[in-house]
Design a binder for these strands. Structure first.
Lengths: 348, 348
DNA sequence: TTGTACGCGTTATCAC
DNA sequence: GTGATAACGCGTACAA
């Protein structure tokens, strides 16, 4: 059994010595520069690097250059429906761009987010991508977060926000209001008149926007939703489950339940089924997001497909593109996907 | 509009000067050390740091210390069912341990994985977590990957593999064989005799193990599965879909389809429904993984719950714990969850 | 306990 | 084109 942690990393100097050149030349040969290196040296240095198993120390490079080439991403909720698709989009784009991305959770709080960005700053990354989840109210900590981000930008870093319009940074935005409005409009077109909205947390930006979209889209078709028919609940399956329970206790049951997310919708469906209802015969349900695994379940859920992975990719693209004077805004929209869970009412 | 990228990061020296102490004292006060600093200096240094907005340069620290405190994780398939749950587990544990983790995709290839580990090594992270997806055959590139990892360990880094038993590193393993066998046994207990297996890719380790488990678990109850009833397919929804099509073309249709994953199962269900079958009346289906959003769908899927997030957490714990002479092995098991999709046969 | 001096691995500047 | 030399920001023997 050999002793663990014995050897020491091969340095550029080792390579230079082995190749019989100066460290500067080795550096230029291996890690590029404006200067060119004679062909012969190129070969010798590279050979030496391979033989020795040299791997550049990015930390040292970052110190020398003042900044690393890595990307960082702060995700708000690790467990929510969006983490996976946007993380996948970002990671995939990073793969194509040959970059590494450091992820860290903001623990669902603006305060923590500010701290986390601070920690990220210590890495001197090329860019920080902020993924999702601000609250409606602009708290003191939100300001701290923006300050922190702005400071990072001041130092030459790039900041891209996903799904968070309104910050003074490049932004990729999924139009939640339009998505919800489109869906609501389609539902109105299918003849639904009595609608209950499962609105998620009252203080979550995304949820808030979607509820707003629902109401507006319905109103456009002459369908009013009294405030009492907007039920607030958790942004997850259990939230939908309990909100559906509340819904059942109403005297005049709705014809359609509009959930702010597929996950919430699934919770609601479970609750309705438990109550002995048959779907979609006894109740129509629709969600938003088009969670992949849900596409084939019964009843297939009507929803709005939102391009989360594409948003992640777009964010990374922005992060890599050189800065411009004005913050850029890339707005992406979803499209309604009609499925069995909302067959329509009456004359349809 | 002010000029972008103007200011320069505050350094430790700036703080020291401002606090009227030497850089070393500032270092000790801010970033800890064995030595202690006088209370008064402590306060002054910290005050100066806050006023100036000092943020330690982790790159410089990494150079000075020879290693960073960051964690790295290489994920094989970004789109597969496991990325999200294990990434979530790792990120959550990292959150608790106050660490950052750099993620990078291995592009589903051992060759790329080796390159990726090499790139990771350049970061000098504390540990590298390898998440999933080796193939059955030990190719030349697999060896390269292990060599790379071993070299990293030699330099003092720590390596933890998830779901990849057999490498000379600490390992967290989900017992795929046992999971599949347990499920298969339970199914046999429910009276199923004619079983078709949707076996996924023939060369994927996880798929291979699960198929083996299915066959063994069934055999234990006297149920034989002829090789012709093991259909290989993609490890995703579409794989299940097309394999189910193949299944339908058989003369003697099965009573039960055992899919190597919930996702494959869902694809199969979709195909069966398309063929006009009613589930579970006309066909029973079971999967593995217990994908969260699928728990409430109809028919609720019988499956094996596998503790992926816990595996992620365990991996991170191992990564943080000091090395031991022998590679450690943490084996986690799943448990069968019986649901509506497999009501059982005959006398049951 | 504090400060000085040097080293960490790499790049940039400047002569050659 | 190449090679000394000086940064880069920080940790840490060493001496004080």
């Amino acid at each position: 059994m050999d002793t663990p942690s014995s050897s020491t990393p091969v340095t550029l100097e080792d390579v230079a010595r082995r190749a019989g050149v100066s460290p500067s030349t080795a550096s230029r040969a291996l890690n590029g520069s404006s200067r060119k290196v004679r062909g012969e040296y190129q070969v010798r240095v590279h050979a030496a690097a391979v033989e020795l198993g040299y791997i550049a120390n990015t930390a040292a490079q970052a110190v020398a250059r003042g900044r690393s080439e890595h990307l960082a991403m702060v995700v708000n909720g690790i467990n929510d429906d969006y983490f996976s698709p946007v993380a996948a989009g970002v990671l995939k784009a990073a793969e194509a761009a040959d970059r590494m991305v450091t992820m860290i959770s903001s623990r669902n709080s603006a305060q923590q987010a500010a701290q986390v960005v601070s920690a990220l700053r210590s890495q001197r990354p090329r860019a920080i991508i902020l993924a999702g989840g601000r609250s409606v109210a602009s708290t003191r900590w939100e300001e701290r977060l923006v300050e922190e981000l702005a400071a990072f930008q001041e130092e030459g870093g790039r900041v891209v926000a996903i799904s968070e319009e309104g910050m003074p940074f490049d932004t990729v935005s999924l139009d939640n209001v339009a998505a919800a409005a489109d869906l609501a409009g389609a539902m109105a077109g299918l003849g639904y008149r009595r609608v209950t909205i499962l609105g998620g947390p009252a203080d979550a930006r995304t949820a808030h926007d979607r509820v707003r979209g629902f109401v507006a889209g319905l109103a456009e078709h002459g369908v009013e939703v009294p405030p009492s028919e907007v039920l607030h609940c958790g942004f997850d399956r259990d939230g939908g489950y309990s909100a559906a329970g509340e819904c059942l206790r109403r005297r005049v049951p709705a014809e359609l339940v509009l959930a702010i997310s597929d996950t919430v919708a699934v919770g609601a469906i479970a609750r309705f089924r438990e109550a002995g209802m048959s779907l979609p015969a006894d109740m129509s349900v629709a969600g938003i997001d088009d969670v992949t695994v849900l596409r084939d379940v019964a009843p297939a859920l009507t929803t709005v497909r939102l391009p989360w992975p594409e948003a992640g990719r777009a964010a990374l693209d922005l992060a890599l593109r050189p800065t411009e004077a004005e913050p850029r805004l890339v707005r992406m929209t979803g499209h309604v996907v009609l499925r069995e869970s909302t067959p329509g009412i009456g004359g349809g």
